[in-house]
Structure formats: structure tokens, C-alpha cells
Design a protein around this nucleic acid. Sequence first.
DNA 1: AAGAGACCCTGTTGGC
DNA 2: TGCCAACAGGGTCTCT
Length: 289
Amino acid sequence: MPELPEVETIRRGLAGELTGSIFSGVEIINESSMPESSSLGTELLLDQEIVGLRRRGKVLIIDVGKNYSLLIHLKMTGQLILERPDGGREGGGHPTKAMVSALPDKSTRVVFDFSDGKRLFFNDQRKFGWIKLKDRGEVEQDSLLMRMGEEPLEAGFIEEVLRKKLRGRKAPIKALLLDQTTVAGLGNIYVDESLHLAKIHPETKAIDLNDEQIAKLHSSIVNIIRTAVRLEGTTLRNYLNHRGEKGGYFEHARVFDRTGLPCPECGEEIEKIRVAGRGTHICVNCQRK
DNA sequence: AAGAGACCCTGTTGGC
DNA sequence: TGCCAACAGGGTCTCT
């Protein structure tokens, strides 16, 4: 479930803790969580320093020394939790009780140790997430990163780019927004939110959107993602972060996970339907087909 | 080429 | 209350 705002929040949190830290150990508990690690052995990380953390779409990139990078995708249930020697925690991802209980636990797939005593746990209940160790020079060649569309919060994401991506496409707009080659970093939550703000029905074929609607969709995506990053992403249900705080974007959600509750624009009951194989929240009054 | 659907995985939810 | 099918979903793969 971590999308761009959640991954960015994790990136910022970890950057403050791990920049300059030196790897002293790597324990792979679940082999499939670290695919391709046989070609470049993880022992290459030992005694290497973390020099920076970047993000591309939903992929977190940890640059290590001069020559290596770790690419991390949390998919739906991945978490990165940093434990300090004093027991303090930092991190995030899909909320589970792992955030408040002893680590490692049964969802822990990989553990990184650092010479300053900090430990980074990669927890992933459903094992869909992955960590890949790559040569720095190969990061840009990664097929997922290469195909990825524009970053919604960067200057390259202009209305015309979105218009071009959608031109002639007959798929429902929701399916295209979930496709990372259209725009980087959007997932189920922020697609629903952006479409509601833009007053566009998720089943609308992209080819049927007029210029005005695409302009509104573009500004809505920027608006929603910017707001979500500012609020440090969305946390569901009773999750508390490391500071004991709840909330963030979730409490500002327009339609997501608000089935049966009133639309913030018109008061109509929010409905849950299925579009592109995904649970989809809409206001049938604001979002007409 | 584009679009639809299966698949991966496991804890949770809901129907009977 | 208990059981079990359905569900959740990002990206990749296959099929049409």
C-alpha cells in the first residue's frame, strides 16, 4: 500500500538516521525477498557507507559507497523499520503490530546491521516486496525505473505530458493512472482521491476525457500528492507511528476507505465499486460517467 | 499495440 | 461459534 507519499516519508525518516552509517552485517531470512542477490553477493555491502537515499516513484534507492545501490520496493505490506541501540524506532510502511513489538518477528525478511548499533528490518507479511543490490551504474538501466513516467511533484510533469500519455487510450482512466508508465508513484489510494477531486468517474475511457478534464486531472494529482507528502502519507486504522502519532492524510481522505460515509463535496453516500480489478471509491453524484 | 485477467502471498473479513 | 472462500493489491506475465 505504500505509494509515493509513504515512500517519500520513509525516505526522509531514514535519511536522517542512516546517512553515514556503515554496514556491519546482512541477514537474509527469506531468499525471495532479495532476488538477484546471488550475482552480487551482499557481503559487498560490509564496511560500506550509506551516502544517500533517493526515490523514484514507489522505489526507494539507497546509495552505498561509490559503487553500489539498494533498490527497495515495499509493494503492499513492506515495512522498513530502523531500530536504534537505545530501542527507539523510525520507519514505516503498511501498519502492523510489528511497529510496537519485538523485532525480528515472523514477517521479518531481511535484517541490516550497522556499525553504530542501528538495525534496519525489512518486514513484509505477503512477501511481494523486494530488495535488489545493483551496481550504481545499472540503477538507471533497471527496466522498472526506465519505463516509469514523470514524477508528479517535479517540473517535468506538465499537463501536456499527461495529455500525450492518455491520447487515444480506450482503457478506463483509473487503470491508466495505476500504470507506473503513465505517472510515477500513484497507487489505489491517491488515484481514487485524485479522480474525486477532478470529478471524473474512474471508468471513463481516457479517450473520452476532454482537454478541460485532463487539465483538472493533472492539477488534482499534483494537489493530492503534494498534500499527502506534507501530511506524511496515509496510515490506516489504528496504526501509530514511532512518535505515537496517528493520522496524516487518512483523516483528510475524500473517498478512500470511506464507503457509506458522506461525500465531502455534496454529502452523497460514497460507494465502493470495482474498476480495473481494484476496489474503487466514488461519489456517484460528483463523478458522473 | 493495447487491454483484460491470472498470478504471487498470507492475514483478515464476511457469509453461511 | 466455526469453517472456508473471498478479499486485499503492485507489478509482471500471458493471452487475445
